[in-house]
Design a protein around this nucleic acid. Sequence first.
DNA 1: GCAAGCCCAGATAGT
DNA 2: CTGGGCTTGC
Length: 702
Amino acid sequence: MKLLNCLNEQQREAVTAVEGPVLVLAGAGSGKTRVLTYRLAYLMSEYNVNPRNLLGITFTKKAASEMKSRLNNLIGEQASNIWISTFHSFAYKILRREIHNLGISNNFSIFDDEDKNYIIKEVLKELKLNDEEKFSPEFYNQKISLIKNTDTAVSFDIAPYFRLVWELYNKKLKENEALDFDDLLLYNLKLWEELPEILQKYQKQFFYISVDEYQDINPIQYRLVKLLSLAHKNIFVVGDDDQSIYGFRGSNMKIILNFKNDFPDARIIKLEQNYRSTKNILKVANSLVEKNQRRHCKELWCMGTEGEKPYHYEAVDERDEAIFVVDKIKELVREKGRSYSDFAILYRIHAQSRVFEEVLLREGIPYQIIGGNRFLDRKEIKDMLAYLRYLENPKDLTSFERIVNVPRRGIGVQTTKKLLQLLKQKNTDEFSEFMSEVEEILPSRAANKVKQFFLLIHKLKEFKEQLGISEFIQKLTELTGYITEFKKSNTIEDTAKIENIEELINMAYEFEKKNPGTKLSDFLGELSLLSDIDTMDEQVGRVVLLTLHNAKGLEFPVVFMVGMEESLFPHRKAQSPEEIEEERRLCYVGITRAKEKLFFTNASRRSTYKQELYNPISRFLSKDIPLELIESNKLNKNFTEVDLNKFSRVTAKIYCQGDTVFHPLWGKGIIMLPGSIDKEEVLVNFLYEGVIKRVKVWELND
DNA sequence: GCAAGCCCAGATAGT
DNA sequence: CTGGGCTTGC
């Protein structure tokens, strides 16, 4: 059998483990995507399984389409009938067909993070909770998400009125016929749990279920998988507990660690041979990740070359850091004939990308930044989408509110408020049905403007039925006058806005071409579920800049891990033992992206929008990875003397830069300047608050 | 009642 | 530097 020839023994064992539950614990670069793909190909070609009976769940749309195209290469056209998608788009597709069974329109809107925050702000206003010090909209946003993803009500204890916020938030979503991202999964689960005949339909369809990146699934996704696989029990999951990095959105490592308990007859296959990195890179990766307590034991090994030791560079500041990286790139391109697409710059937070962008731009090096300022988050795009959403779903009054006076048409806040009230009662956007009331409650000038607006909506609806998606969006920009405003001004920003809208029209065009006969709402769903990494283009010879989270599943010949500093990485908001372990896994993910060369950098001084930080080198470099595994311009014995967990009572004279101290009010901090004012004061960078303060020496405790 | 303009707070990661 | 919220001027 040809398919199996290019696999090692463990991979072959996994691919041919056809029946029953199987867990493949696959280290980084051990060929897990290969195993998944070959197994699907094997099922179709050797077992004659109809592609319609196979389901593949991947982490991103990009991974899904890559898997599809690999399958196409392996076994040809029939592969295109396999259903491979992310959890969220899987759930979305099902809900688009079935959610009416739960009393919600199949044309429901999907609310993104911005919409969600908007709703939460409304909720907080209505409940008159001004306690924004501790409970900001963002806080509620995260808590709501966590509850929805973990299906526990534990967090209700946080504040007595949290339940009120939770309930009103969900009520408002319902009023808008809207689901947030988490709801997609939650309603899918609800559908299957409450309506067994629907569940059975899908159980019957999918004989074999495969799930990639199983270490990052959350309890709801777990329950979905379990329900779906109940009939055939052919559940094949692949993951690496050392790469579990999405705890913040409810994913739980315990799920992969418990697989054997969940499915007692499960087979467990380990893939430990790494085909990606050099020995020296793997040594660093292994030495780091073994510092974690909670993990399956495994050790990556490889037959490959030794390679060079990873190199560490301590920069003066973030600009120097960027210049070092860019110079290295130029050098390697010039002297080793590398191409720009060989390089990736990985960072912990998006904000770090800016300096690199500036320097790359200045040097004329082509680059692409993944994420950060997302295309879909642009105001002009969101406005266009709000029009489209409102046209598809007249109950989506959040979108209505967004566009009723965009572009300006003289319908102000007061008018909008009254209109919203009316629309809520009427449940329709057919103006004829509430025209008389509008004239009653509004002064005639405002009523006139409103009337014009609804005439516009009416006209748009007619065009929507007649035109294709891209043509329709084009028409929308014309009829609403949205673009004309920008065309007049001729500023750079406005030209960019026009270009963005054109890009949206182009995306719609491509979508129609790829999915003939689809509706506008399919396009909207597709857009909502698009992720940053899906837009990455590997072909075009550009340096890639992306977050460590986004780098999961990718590989590059040369990797730069930048900003290796305490408070940035590990991030200051992730300081509990569990969170530190997750940060460490994130670091492990970064290291194992590198095939041939790996660089770490840190900046001893870093300016942010608010202040200057003097962060010590990340503990991952200074403590976890043995010094002899890395070349460095800085790492040496002096440095390792600083024990980040040891607090000592000393005088200003013997405080050193980088020493960890504790202040009763400000918490844990790091000495930036010892004895800078006089011998009684020191400058401390307090990690938790991220502030720099002068404090008296005697205020610092053990 | 509307819109322009000022002021202040603020950015971990992402489907 | 940016975006949302609030104030002021029309």
